[in-house]
């Protein structure tokens, strides 16, 4: 932030959208500041106008409407973690427990994360497994975009300059289901070297997969679904062998890079290991056994 920047803290959504419309070329939305402050400090970003949406109560609401959960963009990780509505979603809860540390979870928001579009965010793979939609709003329009389309490429979200993220929605899973998120990081609360989310829906006899969703963090330009693993499991019987063999297919869908958190080879190895572990945990939570 430079000395000529102005910082706005609107109390209602209309004021925020008006400000955004007026300054769409130069404004940045602040929703917790846990990512944007790092970018500002390191000089990767500068802006004249900051619009902080954390005082807009409408954007911090969590509700269930018609079988779908709506989470306001300014909802902090901590309030989401503690909300009763979210407790059945173990895939999401697992990730909320391991995002950074409590201080960051107290300030960081779900909308802030999704707007940031970093492929290493722990929160994204579980939401991909839940088929989440992102609701974005401008002064004149509201649209809902599947999260899988919202993150277009590295650190790039499908968001126009006059739009902000209003909320994220996802349906309540039906049937016999379970989910889990597994992560490896250099230190507890650190960025994931690799993170894998799994959500399964099991057949009546709890011995076969009706549906499987696998999504990974930190192994590509965006968080990635592993359709290869999903396809090979859907419809098949549950067995340790099938899980082990299918998890190896994850390497077909990912494109990790060598970086500070590890080599591409290690990340590919981890993706398979964590995929298997997340699946086993998800099946156990659904009441299945191996």
């Amino acid at each position: 932030m430079n000395s000529s920047s102005s910082y706005h803290l609107p109390c209602d959504l209309t004021s925020a959208l008006n400000l955004l419309s007026e300054h769409s070329d130069s404004a940045k939305i602040v929703a917790g500041g846990q990512s944007i402050m790092l970018l500002l400090r390191q000089g990767f970003l500068s802006s004249d106008i900051f619009i902080d949406i954390s005082d807009i109560s409408e954007l911090s609401e969590i509700s269930i409407q018609g079988g779908a959960i709506h989470v306001g963009a300014a909802t902090t990780y901590t309030s989401l973690e503690n909300s009763l509505e979210i407790q059945p979603y173990s895939v999401l809860l697992d990730s909320l427990h391991v995002i950074a540390d409590p201080q960051i979870r107290n300030l960081g928001t779900i909308g802030g994360a999704l707007g940031h579009a970093d492929p290493s965010l722990d929160i994204v793979p579980p939401l991909l497994c839940l088929d989440a939609n992102v609701v974005v709003q401008s002064l004149n329009a509201t649209r809902a975009i599947p999260l899988s389309d919202f993150h277009q490429e590295y650190m790039t979200a499908d968001l126009s300059k006059d739009e902000l993220i209003h909320s994220i929605t996802f349906n309540q899973p039906t049937g016999i289901h379970g989910g889990a998120y597994e992560k490896v990081a250099n230190v507890e609360g650190g960025w994931p070297t690799v993170g894998v989310a799994a959500q399964v829906k099991l057949g009546e006899n709890i011995d076969s997969f009706l549906d499987v969703k696998i999504a990974l963090a930190a192994v590509g330009d965006t968080a990635i679904r592993s359709y290869s693993v999903e396809k090979s499991l859907i419809g098949s019987e549950i067995s340790m062998d099938s899980i082990r063999e299918s998890s190896k297919l994850v390497c077909n869908d990912i494109d990790p890079l060598d970086d500070l958190s590890g080599s591409a080879g290690y990340k590919t190895h981890l993706a398979g290991v964590l995929c298997q572990r997340a699946l086993v945990k998800a099946i156990n939570r659904a009441g299945g056994s191996l």
Binding site: D101, V187, E188, G189, L260
Partner: peptide, 15 residues
């Protein structure tokens, strides 16, 4: 390559 506390690992009570 990691001259900041986002990239340089410092341990906490967890470790």
């Amino acid at each position: 390559l990691n001259p900041n506390l986002a990239d340089y690992s410092v341990i906490s009570a967890w470790e």
